[in-house]
Design a protein around this nucleic acid. Structure first.
Lengths: 337, 337
DNA sequence: ACGATGTGCCGGAACGTTCCGGCAAAGGAG
DNA sequence: CTCCTTTGCCGGAACGTTCCGGCACATCGT
């Protein structure tokens, strides 16, 4: 049990060491209190003094020590971010992450990634697409931190804030669009996941079918299914139900992955089979033909989550607030040739 | 200049408040020093005492306050991560991020995202695919922190550590493979970027052509080019140089994006035109036909960067260490029908 | 003249850790 | 027995910040 070799914890006194508040105070000829007040904009400080402090701070390259600050105030200026690990949705999640990162930077917040259940010290938490059957998610939900979720959470606990998109309306719009383009028997390749998003899509499809008096053509593929699996599902669908004249794919990327299978079934997309996706991506834009899809605007989603979290943390917005993020259908050649 | 409404900085004394070291010490009937030593495994503590401390700590749900710790020791147990913002490479970067996150969690480190130049307080920095002409990257390189880059850095400053892949060898292997499959005039659609990776590919291609006495068929597309642009480039290539019998695409996703263009030029991939990609992805696996490509193993790359950074921070590995990450060619139908 | 009010500034405690330098008791060598 | 070493523990300072509660001085109304 020997003591570790004493690493000197003192800041190196060379010019490389970052300046402390005391340095700034000394440099400006004021007390720590005044220096702090001047920098933070608190207290009563004359304009001349404030300027002097700000000036020396800049001159010395002063950066406040976040640890000290957060030790004192117990605010960390940090938000934690959890995203599900599905490479099929890499583009969506990556955009989301950038949205979060950018907005957080704008608000002066750090973003730290949480992968395991071990929650880093943070002021709040953003959960992207939380699935109630994910133990990590459940753990994070009940950690006592303010939580904002991107999309609604189907589990027991209530998030502190929610940003969600009205998939019901947009899928309805999409199905109406297909119908207007002549499709009478649209099928849904649903994502078999417990996520609220997936559930809503199925539910919406069911209702739409009922309202229009058409029989459902529903197939489920597990969330995060490989393209091979998806192709299999679509192949089966087209074999069993050749009357299918439109296919809507729920899962990210699925519609593009499924194109070859449709072709090899002898159907031609945009002509005798309409194809659409519930989530837009590069693959949809560049598929041949380009695929009509719903732009989920993940980047905005990320930014909005941060915004809401900040407002809740600042007490400007009540806990339990829920907001919608507008999403758009983008019509492309796959349904409009 | 009014004072802000005094938010009480004291920890709430209720049972919801997380226990402090002093609480643990009191609970175990020892001093803070002994409690700390017992928990950290430092100093000289009898087994009985250690057990008692560990026990009360668990009982009280003690979590060390990271801010206090890092204030005292000036280590933050945090690494900063920067990734370029190219949605075309979403899958690669996302995998990389998960590799980093996972390995960091294993090492007990937090990962914080850096988007702007504003560097969060961290012990070290990981730069993914740093491009020397990116001002943010340059800024981060010279911030004085230990930096590990994924792929080599072409700029002036030297990173503290580097993990890179031997693209020269793997591209050579790929070109040899194409030749063995009968291709005599392979073209390279290069990524026109200052990243070391892109440069190496071009250079390797040049050399290979020289060695085999074949004339180069090189086309450049700006890094992050839209699929439309890429298609244009390939269309032009096939029109201007119909003798092209193989195409290697450098950029992530490009090979798949370009497939329709090849088809509409009347060529059939895997038959009279071989197609390969320098970076593997879902799109390559699921293209029709599946596309031969080089698996860059981004997840391992991320993990290795963290590992190296940790070793350097611990002083186990000298600064300036450079390591290679093995990458593999995966042969698929696009070159092997 | 005097108190009241406001302005500008500061001393110093506190946040929760780590760890230096002790000190007392126990054990061992002579 | 004495002297020395080892073991087990602890007091308290320090890290850099925030902010409470002051204090001195100026200004102003009466």
């Amino acid at each position: 049990m020997r003591r570790v070799p004493a690493r000197n914890p003192r800041t190196p006194t060379g010019p490389g060491a970052s300046a402390t508040l005391a340095d700034v105070a000394r440099g400006a000829g004021v007390s720590k209190t005044t220096a702090s007040d001047a920098l933070r904009g608190h207290g009563r400080v004359s304009d001349a003094t404030r300027r002097a402090v700000l000036d020396t701070a800049r001159r010395l390259g002063y950066t406040p020590n976040r640890s000290a600050r957060s030790l004192r105030t117990s605010v960390t200026d940090t938000i934690a971010l959890h995203i599900p690990e599905f490479l099929t949705s890499a583009e969506y999640y990556m955009s989301f992450v950038f949205g979060v990162a950018e907005q957080a930077a704008r608000a002066g917040l750090n973003v730290t990634l949480v992968s395991s259940g071990r929650l880093p010290q943070a002021d709040g938490l953003i959960l992207c697409d939380p699935m109630p059957d994910n133990p990590v998610v459940d753990q994070l939900m009940t950690a006592g931190l303010p939580v904002v979720t991107a999309e609604r959470y189907g589990g027991d606990s209530r998030p502190t804030g929610v940003i969600w998109s009205d998939h019901e309306t947009s899928l309805t719009e999409l199905l109406d669009h297909l119908r207007a383009r002549g499709a009478r028997r649209p099928a849904l390749i649903a994502s078999d996941s417990a996520a609220d998003w997936a559930l809503t899509l199925q539910h919406t499809y069911d209702r739409w079918c009922a309202q229009h008096g058409v029989q459902r053509l529903l197939r489920k593929a597990p969330f995060g299914s490989s393209p091979e699996v998806l192709r299999g599902v679509v192949g089966e669908l087209l074999a069993e139900a050749p009357e299918t004249d439109a296919i809507v794919c729920a899962a990210d990327g699925a519609a593009a992955a499924v194109l070859p299978e449709i072709r090899s079934a002898g159907r031609v997309v945009g002509e005798d089979l309409l194809l659409a996706s519930c989530v837009d991506s590069l693959a949809m834009r560049t598929a041949e033909p380009p695929i009509t899809s719903i732009d989920l605007r993940p980047r905005h989603m990320g930014a909005e989550c941060v915004r809401l979290l900040c407002e809740i943390l600042a007490g400007e917005t009540p806990r339990g607030t829920t907001r919608t993020l507008a999403i758009d259908m983008i019509v492309r050649a796959s349904t409009d040739s």
